[in-house]
Design a protein around this nucleic acid. Structure first.
Lengths: 249, 249
DNA sequence: AAGTGGTCTAGACCACAAC
DNA sequence: TTGTGGTCTAGACCACTTA
């Protein structure tokens, strides 16, 4: 037994708190002992306690509020919000998101013209540097409780010979109707990544420490599998899941 | 200018490194200055430098190797691995994963019998506590470079009156053929979460600091939308994306 | 005013990896 | 042996929140 002073002291603190959180001793939302109390309790210095706490923050298990204390964050149970991914058509023939969330944009989306960077040009199968219409929106719903960033990229070449040579096309999903009017039959593919945010992404999406986000790239294709548009969603994965359905391919 | 609330010293260190990483001054894989050098360079103590570094580790921007140094981790570009999610049928009528990865299981999967916890019972629409067959596999591919954990849950009630009352059914995807033989027409839904790992998950999946993982729940349903089985995948999101396709619903 | 977390120092000693 | 990161102390002072 005396052969096991292997575990660092800050680990003891982290383990104590984590186990309490996972086994329900410290239920979600509960305030945890202050750093000073833990410091005395475990007989270690405050920096050592803080190192243990840093581990739980990075794991998204606790949220620390300046001047208030440290609180249990996640029940680690099933998420409360389920967002089906997909496109539906409503009765009026408009395309709407399958999750039926009513987003409001913070800033009115304005079409800007940018040149396609390599990574996007590759996905859209256009030459790098080809001009694109770009819309950038920070969307919120439920009084700011939900938020996501949404970008629409429309490359120029599929619009040649259409009315949208002159006037910018609308952002998605209104864009889809217009593409349909031009004779395209649409389908989509989505690729999903998850990663930790950079500081500006954490601020924009209001992510707390230890919460990753989904970066979803949705490619709009026509019946000949030609890419027509690209959207990027950045969705906090906090207490949220996204769903897809499929049959045998 | 002088009224700006002073940025913490550890933030200066973190910003310096992060900007160098993002703008290409420190390309992926490169060794970054040692803690002692940074400490002298910025005129701060080593704990302060370490606090800045901790921020980059939690963000998954650097990987620190004990005794060797700190290295740039992610170009933050497009992922190198794309895993299409879905089920295909091959020429022999077997079901195979759409990503066509040849997994090998570390331990031979053994059917154990467990009782359904509340969260799973809810998804499978069975009473909590109903017995289930459970398979647990830690799968690897490409000489251990890829790994994922895979669990199959088969509740007992859909098996009543079938040969699998006596002998355990196989784990997915072999399970699908057996369900089809029993007269079911299969389709699936997947729900995707992303979160930071607990210590044991980080160990099993070999996740480095700052890398989240996908927790995918795949529900197998028949033509009457009756749930027949549930699978759980835990997939590192390191340098990897998963993809789905859909038309208009 | 009291309690909380945030920043920071100037060291010390240890464990590990590479030469 | 040298250089790297890992652990830890015993304080100090500051900023924020609540009462």
């Amino acid at each position: 037994m005396e052969k096991s002073p292997r575990k660092p002291r800050y680990q003891e603190v982290a383990d104590y708190l984590r186990e309490g959180i996972l086994n329900g001793t410290f239920p979600a939302g509960q305030a945890l002992p202050s750093e000073e109390i833990l410091s005395k309790e475990f007989g270690v210095s405050r920096p050592t306690v803080r190192q243990g706490i840093a581990e739980l923050r990075a794991a998204g298990l606790v949220e620390v509020l300046m001047g208030r204390g440290m609180f249990v964050r996640s029940p680690n149970a099933r998420p409360n919000i389920t967002r089906p991914r997909g496109i539906r058509k409503d009765r009026e023939g408009r395309y709407v998101e399958a999750d039926a969330i009513q987003w409001t944009s913070n800033d009115e989306p304005i079409a800007t013209r940018t040149d396609a960077p390599l990574a996007l040009a590759d996905l859209l199968r256009i030459p790098p540097g080809e001009p694109m219409f770009t819309y950038d929106e920070l969307q919120t719903a439920e009084r700011g409780r939900l938020r996501q960033s949404h970008r629409t990229y429309v490359p120029f070449s599929p619009l040649i010979g259409t009315p949208f040579e002159e006037t910018a096309p609308p952002p998605a999903p209104a864009l889809y109707v217009e593409l349909e009017r031009l004779g395209h039959v649409l389908h989509w593919t989505e690729s999903v990544r998850a990663r930790m945010p950079l500081p500006d992404e954490a601020t924009a999406l209001r992510l707390v420490d230890g919460v990753p986000f989904f970066q979803v790239l949705r490619l709009t294709l026509n019946q000949h599998d030609k890419p027509l548009a690209l959207e990027e969603f950045k969705i906090p994965s906090d207490d949220l899941e996204i769903t897809y359905g499929f049959g045998t391919v």
